[in-house]
Every structure is written in structure tokens, then in C-alpha cells.
Amino acid sequence: MSDAAITFSDLTLGYNSHAAVHHLNGVVEAGSLTAVVGANGSGKSTLMKAVAGLLKPMSGKCRVEAGRRIAYLPQQSELDRSFPVRVVDIVDMGLWPRRGLLGRTAARDRALIGEALAAVGLAGFEKRPIDTLSGGQFQRALFARVLVQEADIILLDEPFNAIDAKTVADLIALIRGWHGKGLTVMVVAHDLDLVRTTFPQALLLARRPVAWGETAKVLTPETLRTARNFEEAWNDDAPWCAADNGSARASHEPHGHPHHHGAAHDHARPAPMARAG
């Protein structure tokens, strides 16, 4: 249980030198089930993209243990649901890591797709065009794609958005199943009650790690208040992060410039590190 699946060392992520996640340190243990929580704009999706290898860190490192395969499920809004394909084609995409650009679909793969669709409750939906699915059915199809990927690390970005209770329950059962099989799972979620009942670990983000560890210790009134008070606005004049001073980008800034995100830089990990902003 104790070996690392993903290691963050001083990871800073962002766009155009504006950081979305500051100086994240810590280890996602193999076999852990972690909820990533925080307000809109707190850097949750950015962090998932970095782990999936879609975003280069501005500084620091995000290391995925060698040989571990990642299955990444983007937010539904990133997909084009009017695209003319069938449910089976969506799930079929999950075979990409094994099959690549030109590989043929083997009989075993077709069986795998059928099993995955049955497991998410979409048996018999193979030929349905995706634009006829409800939001919940579409999310089930995407979970079937994750199943087909047979990955070791599973990253789900807001899988429960605009999904009804029955579907959420079914998807949670699938996630619990992955956890039971020893897979490493990280899920971006907004529903704190759901996080408390389902996820043993939680990471609370507010552009910086506010707290990370056992869910009960992470989601306290104190930490949540801290997380709410972060600077959400994209500020063009935001001061340069003091930890970067000395780099070429920050060299023209005077040292000791007042730091706009407080004492974010003495990182304990992975124990809870609540502090008043």
C-alpha cells in the first residue's frame, strides 16, 4: 500500500506564467482512492491534466511511476457530443494504448468492449449514436472506455456533473470496484457529502494545496473556509511568486515583495496542513 504511484515535487502549473497550482508536494500512493476538491478555478482540472501528461509543469515535477498506465477521463464539456459516432466507437477508443493507430481490433477486444458496456449498464447500446444518449448514459459509456483501457491509474475529471442520483450510485460502485482491485484512482468532485462517504483520501486545492490526507481531517470547517478565501480572479498584476525569485522571469521584481498567496510554501505532506489564509 505504501509505494508511490504519482509523486509531485514542487509542482507549479499554469498558463502564460500565471500559476493555477502552486508548489504542490506529495505522493499519491498506489492503490489509494483520492477525491480532489476545491472551488471552480482552484486548479483541479489543471492538476489532472498535468498527471495525464497533457500539460507541462511551469516548474517542479510530476512523476508517474514507470510502467503504470493512465486512463484519463476529461470533463464531459471537452467532448463533442454531436459528433456522429456510435457508443461502441467511443468505448473502442479505450483500446488505443494497446492497439495504436493502425492495429486491428481482435476478437478479445470486441469481447472486452461488450463486457465493459454490460458492466456500466449499457448492454445492447452498442449501435446507438452518441447524440441520442442522455447525459448519464453518455457518462456510463465514458466509464466503459476507462474499463477497456485496463489502466493502473485512473483520473476522472468531474464525472458526476449533471448526473442523476441513480447513475452516480452506479458509477461510484464502479469506482469502488477499481479501488478494491488495487488501482490508483483520483476523482475531481464537488459534492462534499459524497466525498466524505466514498473517498478515504482527499486533496483540497485553492490554487495551492490547502490540505491533503484522510478525508475526515481534510474537510474541516476551518480548511474549507481557507479554501474559499483564495484569489479566484485572474489578476494580470499578480505579484511574482517569491519562491521563483532568482529565475530570469522574476529577476526584475524586488525581493521581499509582499506575497499574495500567503504562507503557501512550507509544505508538509501528506499530512493535513490546514492554516488560516
Binding site: L54, L73, P74, L79, M93, Q149
Partner: peptide, 10 residues
């Protein structure tokens, strides 16, 4: 269809 997914696998 899903550019982010493609980038995550290829």
C-alpha cells in the same frame, strides 16, 4: 471527438 483523450494516450 475527444482531443484531450487522444493527447492522453498518444
Amino acid at each position: 471527438l475527444d482531443p484531450l483523450f487522444l493527447r492522453s494516450v498518444s
